[in-house]
Design a protein around this nucleic acid. Structure first.
Lengths: 211, 211, 211, 211
DNA sequence: TAGTAAGCGAGACGGTACGTCACGTCTTAAC
DNA sequence: GTTAAGACGTGACGTACCGTCTCGCTTACTA
């Protein structure tokens, strides 16, 4: 469903040059114009208002060029997401799980409610409810990486001896992160620091090895 | 945005009869056909495949009849939702918070992942990510009631002396219910009894007054 | 392929009212706007430049309204053709075959080379060379009538005793009319009165009963 | 508009791009593949279905190679036409105008209705109705030669003393050939030997010097 | 008990966007 | 310097639905 990128990536193109591999002449200019146009439009007119025609017009590009490399507007938006999320959701490493988790959850709440890339994320999650194939792609190609980075937070706590070695990391993540998404996606309630801090406190009061 | 129903409701029509008010001749037959057609279509072709034209055709109804009483396909689907959810998410009352919560969360997980009405709910939450006005209506007219019933579960625990009187009920609900929605809406991980039971256990180990 | 017209025709609606016949709510306004737009465009930009989108835009009409009643741009153009041709190619009746034929052929030559409706006709004949189905429709629904009127010219001559009763009317028409079309469609040579008069003279010198 | 060919054809170069061909000269292989592909496609999918992309794909050739040497699909098809027409419409020379004309008209009728090259011709005439520039090219570069050869038929009759010296040859050709084209292009009626023979008989009964 | 007005089914209408096709131009690498 | 390949911007295709708007029609209340 999704496309490969950065074909022209100057640094680090250690492409295997597999036999039968042809030079790809994809236009980097068009690729960037499309991704930017899509992001801009999402912010300006909302997900429902984003159209392939609109992206093409704004990017100064033919519709076919979009369809050649992406399968839908969701696919275009996914393309930017990981990059943006990676930079805006940097993993904290402050020396203790408590601080790391508190920092991360605060950051996540802000990301989801304030950042443009957060709006992309919630829109994509919304779309995933309507489209199983897109949901699968989204999880595999984008959320998985995101999630793996979150696991690291907890694993560091285990290594440090702050958390039990037999902790069910995925369940713990659901317990910590789930309430944040729940408020953002379902109830629309605010997700302030008090709320996220309390989640961490509650979590640690059960699992922390050290008082 | 939404509509009121059962205008033809045979029993209990104690209509206010304001001056100049004319009896309404809305067709109950059409109303039911539309709601059923919408639900059927959602299951058969998915949210994105549901269209007003499709509902009208399947229900044997003119499009105008739909637009006369509802504002969108989301509005039609919302109409069924509360009714269905009420009956399928009956509140347990088994004498202890632990059991009530465990039962309820298991039920909720099943509802969200297996029930047709659960599919309607996740579709509507998906749509809410793309449409702020619809999101507001949905929360006010449908989720609010749903949520109020969930609060009762915890309030009963307080009354029974199982939970502290100063418990932040909304935060507690987010902590219990959020992880379930998170898995359903975001990660797609299974949500089995072990997972939901653990959520209750974890929750109570922090808040329970009685060991 | 083609459509029926004048559904709203006030006078002369001696419609058989066959059982099951429903009143049609087709918009006469849209019908006329489309036909006029198509004719105008043909003159302004030529057949190849006429597009369904262009007709729709010029007529202030949705594309679907065109597709609902016609199958292609050729179908739209055919629709005007018979009406126009009927009025611009009035059959002369001057008392002698010689005069009738000379008048008619001069008229035909002018029609084909000068009249807007003549441009429609040659464009449609051109299209018929590329599209067998359209060719069949065109002949059955439009040329047939046209041609039948031409036969009348010769039949009147037979009735008057100016031509032999066993004249092969269709072959005679080909002999008279064919050269005119040939010059217009194939060679592009001018088709002046001297040319058409000579065709009549040549024809009659073989078939005329009366010197 | 049209192109010149056989750049490699100094004197009888019947090569098929033999090994050792110059890569910086026009490829005869490509030229032939393109012309053949175009002819094949015309027969298989009809004029409207022939596309430059289709020709390129079928010929195993880049689109640019077509555009480099021809200006349009009509131009490609014209290229084959004269060659084919020359060989399939050989001028008869049987000693008398009557026999020559009868033979030629029968041949022409068959060519137009049965031969692949005849289908090319009618398609080109059709296209000429939509495109004035192409029409001019077609007449100058292809029909003119064709037509000149037809004049020879009549001039031989004049030389032989069978036709009057002051015969208007072009008008006579229109009278003889026009009806054939008319039936093929316009009415779609069959054009059998009886019809064409009658044309010749009718023509000669007016112009023949010798009874 | 006849008239009348609302709701109904039907579906035409002006639109927007879809996803596809082919256009004619362009760039690249291979020979 | 031509070739096969194919990406590009452009623009039309024909389709699906949108939400609005009449059309008769049926029905049940009012006058």
């Amino acid at each position: 469903m999704n496309s490969s990128h950065r074909l022209d990536d100057p640094a680090g193109d250690q492409d295997g040059d597999r036999p039968g591999h042809r030079a790809d002449r994809r236009s980097e200019r068009a690729r960037r114009a499309i991704l930017n146009a899509a992001d801009d439009l999402l912010v300006e007119v909302g997900y429902a208002g984003v159209t392939i025609e609109g992206i093409a017009a704004r990017a100064g590009v033919g519709k076919q060029t979009i369809y050649r490399w992406w399968s839908s507007k969701a696919d275009v938006l996914m393309d930017n997401f990981s990059t943006d999320a990676r930079s805006e959701l940097a993993l904290p490493d402050l020396g203790s799980v408590r601080e790391d988790l508190m920092t991360y959850l605060r950051q996540l709440a802000l990301f989801l409610t304030e950042a443009p890339a957060g709006a992309v994320l919630t829109a994509l999650i919304g779309q995933a409810q309507h489209d199983r194939a897109m949901a699968a792609t989204f999880r595999d190609a984008h959320l998985a990486e995101h999630r793996e980075r979150e696991r690291v937070l907890l694993r560091r706590g285990i290594v440090r001896g702050e958390l039990r070695a037999d902790l069910d990391v995925d369940a713990a993540l659901a317990e910590l992160i789930g309430p944040v998404y729940y408020r953002v996606l379902v109830t629309g309630e605010p997700v302030g620091p008090a709320f996220t801090d309390a989640l961490v406190t509650s979590f640690l009061s059960n699992r922390a090895l050290t008082a």
